[in-house]
Write a protein that binds this DNA or RNA. Structure first.
Lengths: 139, 139
DNA sequence: TTACTTGCAAAAGTTTTGCGTAACA
DNA sequence: TGTTACGCAAAACTTTTGCAAGTAA
């Protein structure tokens, strides 16, 4: 039996041969618990609430390492700062509510198919893509 | 008759009551001539090639002003730096060739319609959106 | 043990801002 | 002629890095 804070991300780290140090465990736990898209400062804030000694540089380094191995995805919205999310098993897109800043994930197979078709017409293979739709609630 | 460096962007600036100073004219000229998506440092490099006295801060300030008035659009790709393009009259999306970094604009009415439909299903009105498709040439 | 990771502090890179001067309308 | 914008320099903010010490495997 594993610790109660064990996450799927941790198992994937082990599989990749990444050391599961104390700081990394905390960061992975925070990532797994996040259902939003925090920037590094916000991540660090949450990490420090659990383990006050963990340094901001460690959070940056860990995010880079995780992103390099594809365990998380680095986003970039209009505000300029890097944001992250646990790498989705199934791809999705984003609605960004411009009145609240809230990010909502959605997926449309129809859009996915359409993109494939268009890229092929241009002679490309799709490596990845990002669709962010900035919205406001209908009045 | 207007100066030979006159651009549509300049006319739109006048309409908005923005002062057409020397530095702004040069920046608008560079923007109009750019068919890529330069970051601010690259913009400044091109601006300085025309008028060496123009300061980096002026480029930043001008880009912010233009973006506030909707004359240009601020993009943000994976590299983190802000990039810009002259605000398109007709919306378009981007292919980013991951082997060369080249950005290709395209447009699909079918995708536009589909997005409208999906947003409406979620109870949203679309304010704007961004679709970046990272591709590699088909072998 | 031994290579990898951390904390700390300093550096590097990007963007903004305060202020006195210049110049557009 | 009165704002507004500019150049310059300094500050603010985000991210990376060098190094000595600590730690997982």
């Amino acid at each position: 039996m594993t610790k109660n804070s064990e996450t799927g991300l941790m198992q994937r780290c082990r599989d990749l041969g990444l050391r599961l140090t104390g700081p990394r465990r905390v960061i992975l736990q925070v990532l797994a618990a996040a259902d939003d898209h925090p920037d590094v400062e916000e991540l660090h804030r949450r990490v420090v609430a659990i383990e006050p000694r963990i340094n901001l540089a460690t959070v940056y380094r860990t995010m880079n390492t995780l992103a390099e191995h594809g365990l998380i995805e680095r986003l970039s919205f209009a505000d300029g700062r890097a944001r992250y999310e646990a790498a989705p098993q199934t791809h999705h897109d984003h609605f960004i509510n411009i009145e609240t800043g809230a990010v909502i994930e959605f997926r449309s197979d129809e859009i996915e198919r359409l993109q494939q078709k268009i890229a092929r017409d241009f002679g490309f293979d799709i490596v990845s893509h990002r669709l962010d739709i900035y919205v406001r609630p209908r009045r």
